[in-house]
């Protein structure tokens, strides 16, 4: 089944997603990798400069031109690295969608179910294609972590195809 979703994504919409479904997403997403996760979990919620409604595991390749950031390539990074932070993240920020590649271990299935969230996989290595769906850089935070690790707030239009790889019903596309 194909879904066209817009951010912010709510509980009801997430519950409609089933493993194997295809999603095209429009709206605002935020990139976060290992170090950003750690900082986001350390800081009090009111000091977090972004909404984590949709998180994208990605360290984009960007270029600054005329004082404006342009995203040139922005495929997903390996999500498993962020698995140690997953439980606390879903708990603290009520994140509804995580986009990445490679998935999490089977233990994460329960977490997505418990917090009514879903994991969407974008094709690893398809960075240029992902960048094509990114219309604008709305903001960047925590650049002190380095360009790949910073929080990039991106406006996307019909970003996809994203595969529902772990859904909010405890199912996963990845074999055990």
């Amino acid at each position: 089944m194909r879904h066209e979703l817009s951010t912010p994504v709510g509980r009801e919409e997430v519950l409609k997603l089933r493993v194997g479904d295809v999603v095209y997403l429009s709206g605002v997403i935020v990139t976060a990798r290992d170090r950003a996760h750690r900082r986001a979990l350390e800081l009090p919620k009111e000091e977090i400069p972004v909404s984590f409604n949709v998180i994208y595991h990605c360290g984009p390749l960007v270029k600054k031109q005329n004082e404006r950031w342009e995203v040139l390539s922005a495929g997903p990074t390996t999500s498993a690295r962020m698995e140690p932070y997953l439980a606390s993240l879903l708990e603290k920020f009520s994140t509804r969608l995580i986009i990445g590649k490679g998935g999490f271990s089977p233990a994460a299935k329960e977490l997505f179910k418990k917090h009514t969230a879903a994991y969407l996989a974008f094709t690893g290595g398809a960075g240029a294609l992902a960048a094509r769906a990114i219309k604008r850089v709305l903001a960047v935070h925590w650049l002190d972590l380095g360009i790949p690790e910073a929080l990039w707030v991106l406006e996307v239009a019909e970003f996809g195809p994203l595969i529902v790889a772990m859904d909010a019903h405890g199912e996963s596309v990845y074999q055990e």
Binding site: R35, G59, P60, L61, V62, K63, L72, S73, L145, G146, I147, P148, E149
Partner: peptide, 15 residues
Amino acid sequence: VPLRPSIVDAITRKN
């Protein structure tokens, strides 16, 4: 080209 600056110090992790 550009390339993404991905190299960090192994200990301080500074890019």
